[in-house]
Structure formats: structure tokens, C-alpha cells
């Protein structure tokens, strides 16, 4: 995850807050699409070269967290290292109506908070690419009484593609070691 040290911190001016508002709306709209199970429409806001990554997190000795805590994209087995194609397959699978881990569909609410911008390119005045840090709290209720709560951090990059924001990268840092849920059958 990118470090949001004082040095890299964007100036909190009008441009920042205006852009932040726009980005927040994007993220809330996205959460709404997913919560309302409009999966195909969600796919439309993903860029064709999307990377969607969720590492497995280990307990490691103090001082080795940077290299060792999370599994590495491109080398290790992680929970997710997906592209738009595999995500579209996951959606097709739900749409068969025979994906028993999501049939009947889970009830899911996504809370997205602590939104902060970083790495706005090329300029704050005319942004084309924005890095965003946020937190999520996702409640999943399925079948009769099965509940999962997922807390964690997201690090997103949005890019303007023909005038529309598209998600080009999402790194999901789930705050769990041994996964407490039997399945990760929802989108983060």
C-alpha cells in the first residue's frame, strides 16, 4: 500500500475537496450497485486492464512486516489476484442460479469510509488518475442465520477513460489472518 506520510500528503485545498467529493460519489455508487446486486453494471465501471488483488496476511516478526506480512502479487498464492475476465466469470457464475455459495443470494451491505486521495495525476486541477485510500466494513448475511463481517483497507486507482472514471486497480487488505468466513463469495 502506498504510504500516506506527511511528505506525500496532498494539500487540503478546494481542488482536493471537490475531487474527493466526486470520488466519494463514485465509490458510493459502486457500493450501491453491488449491494443492489447489479453485478453486470458493476463490471462496466471496471477498466479492461483492472487488477483486483487481495493478499493472504501472515503473522510475522516485528520489523519484517513490509516484506513478509502480505503475500506478493505476481508470485504467491493470494486470496484474489484477478482481472476483469475472472471477475466477469464470477458474475456469470452467480447468474447461473446454481452457484450454491451465492444461491440464494447473500444480503450484503458495504460501508466505505475514511476516504483520502493521494497521487493525483497529472494535476489536481485536471486529474486523470487518482489514488484513493479507504476503509470498508462489509456485512454479509446468507441463508438463514449465517453472518460474516469483513473489515479492511482498500487502495484503489481510478482513471478517466473517455470522460468516465474507471477502476484500474484495487488492493484489498482484509484484517484477518486465518480467514474466519468459510467463503469469499462477495465482491470487495
Amino acid at each position: 500500500m502506498n504510504d500516506l506520510g506527511e511528505k506525500n500528503k496532498l494539500r487540503r485545498d478546494d481542488y482536493y475537496y471537490r475531487l474527493k467529493q466526486e470520488i466519494e460519489e463514485f465509490l458510493y455508487d459502486e457500493a450501491e450497485l453491488l449491494d443492489q446486486r447489479n453485478f453486470s453494471e458493476w463490471l462496466d465501471i471496471l477498466s479492461d486492464d483492472l487488477i483486483y488483488f487481495m493478499p493472504i496476511r501472515r503473522n510475522v516478526k516485528f520489523g519484517t512486516h513490509n516484506e513478509k506480512e502480505n503475500t506478493r502479487e505476481g508470485y504467491d498464492i493470494s486470496w484474489f489476484e484477478e482481472d476483469k475476465w475472472t471477475l466477469s466469470k464470477r458474475i456469470d457464475q452467480i447468474h447461473t442460479g446454481k452457484h450454491w455459495a451465492e444461491e440464494p443470494l447473500s444480503r450484503v451491505s458495504r460501508m466505505i469510509t475514511n476516504i483520502q486521495l493521494q497521487n493525483v495525476k497529472p494535476t489536481m486541477q485536471e486529474p486523470c488518475e487518482v489514488g484513493i485510500k479507504s476503509r470498508f466494513l462489509i456485512y454479509q448475511n446468507r441463508s438463514e442465520n449465517e453472518c460474516n463481517t469483513f473489515y479492511g483497507k482498500r487502495s484503489d486507482i481510478l482513471r478517466l477513460e473517455t470522460g468516465v472514471w474507471k477502476l484500474i486497480r484495487r488492493e484489498i487488505i482484509l484484517d484477518q489472518n486465518i480467514l474466519m468466513a468459510k467463503n469469499l463469495s462477495i465482491f470487495f
Partner: peptide, 25 residues
């Protein structure tokens, strides 16, 4: 194969998720 394993197996895998549901119930 690494990417195939990830989309196939385990709690995030598209195949084994359905196993888990059946085993549990």
C-alpha cells in the same frame, strides 16, 4: 497455474465455494 489455482480452489475459488456450502449444511 498459480492464477488458475486461485480462481479454482479454496474459499475464494469458484469451484470449492460450492463444496463448502454443501459440506456445511
Amino acid at each position: 497455474v498459480r492464477r488458475y489455482y486461485m480462481r479454482y480452489a479454496g474459499p475464494a475459488g469458484m469451484t470449492e465455494q460450492d463444496d463448502m456450502e454443501n459440506w456445511n449444511q
